[in-house]
Design a protein around this nucleic acid. Structure first.
Lengths: 402, 402
DNA sequence: AAATATTGTTCGGCTCCTGAACTAAGTCGG
DNA sequence: CCGACTTAGTTCAGGAGCCGAACAATATTT
């Protein structure tokens, strides 16, 4: 895929550029093949053994990698293995959701060695102050970590240039600076990203299905629907950062009214809230409240009921799945990714929902054969892992050249 | 935009890599600012004057650029201007459309200095043989050109790995090797690309509106609808090369039957053929044939009639525009490009069609403000210019690194 | 013990960028 | 008319970094 050089924003190559490029390649190869010897790296990369040694020396000095045990070969000198230095960096991952906010501390190996959740406050300024305090506590509790940065997943789109949150519909927050308060509280660089985008990043950088997959989409289903797009191996954010709002494309012009002002948007037809609505309507009674908190049941309850064999709940899920499939069919037809990963509570009923989606997509998309549709494992904490990837990208991503 | 390094397909940096990168940057700067002095290039690029001189020397030796007239400054030594060597390369551009195939010979400056059209034959093998013969004639007629390659725009998608044409619905060609016969006839490298993609490339590389626009879509409206996507400054081809088939997303589940087997696809609702159908239906008479060749009038005739004030023709165009807008609204909402360029005969009635599209998009897309919708100038031969860009990309595109 | 295989290091040679010094060629002010 | 100043372009030493060959280290096999 040839890219046009952006003459308004490019980097010329300096003497050190080659080293930067090769360093990143080796870092990625070590990440993939660890533990791995210098000689193996040379073979994998095509670089000379001498060059690999030189770069390895630097990486060791910078503590990105460590030398490990000796290997064993049928003949010849034993290789010394290199692997990523797990303790080198700490990344603070934050998943800010409408109800609760999760904070975690991750190492280079994408494993979390601390995690806590707090309820998300309504007042953004107050809450960000509280969150900043929590982060300081976390850092004080782990003083020997070399902190690399903070990644935040937000339930809304982030302005590419100002780095402010445009609008988070389910929080009611608008044009908010999330970055500065957290940076001032912690002294670390903060990277913001839309939650659907972080899901896609998570799958790209640490997914099980994503090896060598340059085109993949995440479909994040909650109260709304957001899509994260990885195309040609990179996140697509569109003009100002608002790409991915497929949740607001019109599926049925005469459908229910959406918050956005239009009728029959995908997320009105296929989100968790839609399922709640379907449940309310299927029977005759409208206020069959389950948890007593409102007129319509929470989506969690519908999942629970369906599992227990409740027919109405099951049918609500089926309807939701049908419309999810209709939207995904559009994505498959238009973008033909190798993979689409569905994220959200709905995956807990994947045995029921998955086949319906598959069926609709096969029916409606000419190009269905090119795309695998996969449910994200809820245990994998896709959002959180994505924010880690967001921070690690800086070191492991392709260098920004030309 | 950080890209993940593809460990199955990467290039390490060698000593010459820096030169390759900087050479491409300078080549692009010369293209943009020509005529331009070495000193100016140094300022634009940030490279040392000595480095610029060294690279310029190479480019002169390779005849990519030539030294032109002296400039004039209020003070100091006169600069010698550099500009692209227009005569350096010849690119053969081929636009293969269902009815006619256009062949042109272009220089580095995107200007065509020879052009001819032949009717497209029904038998692909026979036709490709004939086309190859024509190409040889063209090359013989211009023997002093240094031929760089052949770019072909096809009315169908091309398999990324096999480079074969998957399927061209309006030609009825299926799984066809277009590349080999043309390469054998001419001895030149042949690049194939879908016509919607070439339109997008044309706008990216030689468009008037595309300066510094990394995200843009082309919507190619003919008997069907194809979309070409430039995202993050590069063509998105999807899994096997079939991305962009937005023409086959379902707009109305109960709409007319499409060739693809589904109902209410965008291209059934908004293509040239759709307008012909609307024309036939608006009045009571169905076979109001205009050219006498069939039951429905050609789209050309509808445009003509509408221009002459025919109400039915105008209403058919309005309907078509309405549905074009509905599809474009989906693209704007989901991909939020800076720009969408509409290509096809329909742009000849843009004064009528454009405002309707704008209106629908504003109504339906939350993100409409981020996107300009523009009609391609038919005189600019977007398809042909795109195939030239396809070939030139190899030299002017960002280097494939890491 | 010698031959062979494999890992990892050292070093000269090459490419290429930087930056300072230098040459070339113009304007301007006295 | 001439020297001061300015800008364009070239030359050259110095340093970063890759390559490739030679070499040292270490293991197995004969």
């Amino acid at each position: 895929m040839v890219r046009k050089i952006d003459l308004n924003n490019f980097q010329v190559a300096r003497s050190e550029t080659a080293r930067d490029i090769n360093r990143r390649i080796l870092l990625n190869l070590i990440r993939k093949h660890q533990p791995v010897s210098r000689a193996d790296l040379s073979r994998h990369s095509g670089l000379q053994r001498s060059t690999v040694s030189s770069i390895a020396e630097q990486l060791l000095a910078e503590r990105w990698v460590t030398e490990g045990a000796m290997g064993h070969l049928p003949r010849g000198r034993k290789p010394t293995f290199l692997h990523l230095n797990r303790d080198r960096v700490g990344i603070i991952a934050i998943d800010l959701r409408p109800l609760k906010t999760t904070i975690a501390l991750a190492g280079l190996d994408n494993r979390f060695f601390a995690q806590e959740s707090i309820p998300t406050g309504k007042d953004p300024v107050k809450f960000l102050k509280q969150l900043g305090g929590r982060l300081c506590d976390l850092m004080k509790a782990h003083p020997h970590v070399c902190y690399e940065g903070i990644g935040v997943a937000l339930p809304g789109r982030v302005d590419l240039s100002t780095k402010r949150l445009f609008f988070a519909p389910n929080l009611g927050w608008r044009d908010l600076d999330v970055k500065t308060p957290l940076e001032q509280a912690t002294g670390l660089a903060v990277e913001l990203e839309n939650d659907a985008n972080t899901c896609a990043l998570a799958e790209l950088w640490s997914g099980q299905h994503a090896d060598g997959v340059p085109n993949m989409l995440s479909v994040a289903v909650t109260e709304g629907i957001g899509v994260g797009m990885i195309l040609n191996g990179q996140l697509v954010r569109g003009s100002t950062g608002v790409a991915g709002e497929f949740g607001h494309i019109a599926l049925h012009e005469d459908g229910p009214l959406c918050n956005c002002g239009n009728h029959g948007c995908w997320e009105v037809m296929a989100s968790n809230s839609a399922a709640s609505r379907y449940y309310g309507r299927t029977g005759s009674a409208r206020n069959h409240a389950v948890n007593g908190s409102g007129i319509l049941p929470e989506f969690q309850d519908i999942l629970q009921l369906a599992k227990q064999g409740d027919v109405r709940a099951g049918e609500a899920l089926d309807q939701m799945a049908h419309h999810l499939g209709a939207g995904i069919a559009i994505l498959v037809t238009g973008l033909a990714p190798e993979m689409i990963i569905v994220v959200g509570e709905v995956t807990r009923a994947w045995k029921r929902v998955g086949p319906i989606i598959e069926k609709i997509v096969k029916q409606r998309s000419v190009t269905w054969a090119t795309t695998r549709i996969i449910a994200a494992d809820p245990a994998e904490q896709t959002r959180l892992r994505g924010t880690v990837a967001l921070v690690l990208q800086k070191h492991f991503g392709a260098p920004s050249i030309a």
